Computed example of a mutant assay.
Amino acid sequence: MANIKSAKKRILVNNTKMERNKAIKSGVKTAIKKVDAAVVAKDAEAAKAALLNATSVIDKAATKGVYHKNNASRKVSRLTKAVNSIQ
């Protein structure tokens, strides 16, 4: 356990950031799963709606620094390609 005051604060701040990042990543994964489920069901309208939501969630995660912008872009690209394949 840390003895120095700044080290103790670092532990608290890191835990707070970890919890925040974990929640954001979980939201991204849920949004991606919804798109994938709609694609598997071949429901174009639901897939488009889920894609719009997922894109928003992923972009927000990238803006907050949880994902690198290229990683977020790759995720959106793959989802878009999957949605376009069912039409």
Rank of each mutant, 00 (worst) to 15 (best):
K33C: 00
V35S: 08
K9N: 05
V83C: 07
K42R: 12
A7E: 15
A72H: 11
A47Y: 07
Y67H: 09
I32L: 12
A38R: 10
N84G: 00
K17L: 08
S73E: 06
A46K: 10
R10P: 07
V13P: 02
K42G: 00
A46D: 01
A38K: 09
N70S: 06
D36G: 07
E19C: 04
S85M: 05
A31K: 12
L51S: 13
A50K: 13
N15H: 04
A2Y: 04
K34C: 00
A47M: 07
A72V: 14
T30F: 06
K60D: 13
I86M: 02
A62F: 09
L51P: 15
N14S: 14
A62H: 11
A44V: 15
A37P: 01
K29P: 00
T30H: 00
N70P: 04
S56Q: 11
D59Q: 15
I32W: 05
T63V: 05
K29S: 13
K64I: 01
N14Q: 11
A37C: 04
I24Q: 05
T30D: 10
L79V: 11
A62Q: 14
G65W: 08
R10N: 02
N14W: 01
A54F: 11
I58F: 10
A46E: 10
I24T: 15
A47S: 13
A46F: 04
T30R: 06
K25T: 08
A61S: 14
S6A: 14
V13F: 01
K34N: 14
I86L: 03
G65N: 05
K48V: 08
A61I: 14
T16Y: 04
A23Q: 03
K22T: 14
A31H: 08
M1T: 04
N70F: 01
K17V: 03
V40S: 12
I86R: 08
A44L: 15
A62W: 09
V13L: 07
V35F: 09
A44Q: 14
N70D: 12
A72R: 10
K75H: 03
V28H: 06
K29H: 06
K60G: 07
A61K: 03
K9G: 00
N21Q: 11
S77K: 14
T63I: 11
V35E: 10
V57F: 02
K8A: 06
K60E: 05
L51H: 13
N3C: 06
A50Q: 15
A31V: 04
K48R: 15
R20Q: 13
V35H: 13
Y67T: 11
I4T: 03
M18H: 02
K9P: 01
L79A: 13
A82Q: 12
A49L: 14
E45H: 07
K22G: 01
A41Y: 00
D36K: 08
K69E: 13
N71L: 00
A44C: 02
K48N: 15
K48C: 10
R10I: 00
T63C: 05
A50L: 06
V40G: 11
D36V: 06
A37K: 14
S73R: 08
K34W: 10
R74D: 09
R20H: 11
K81A: 13
N21G: 12
T16L: 06
A46I: 11
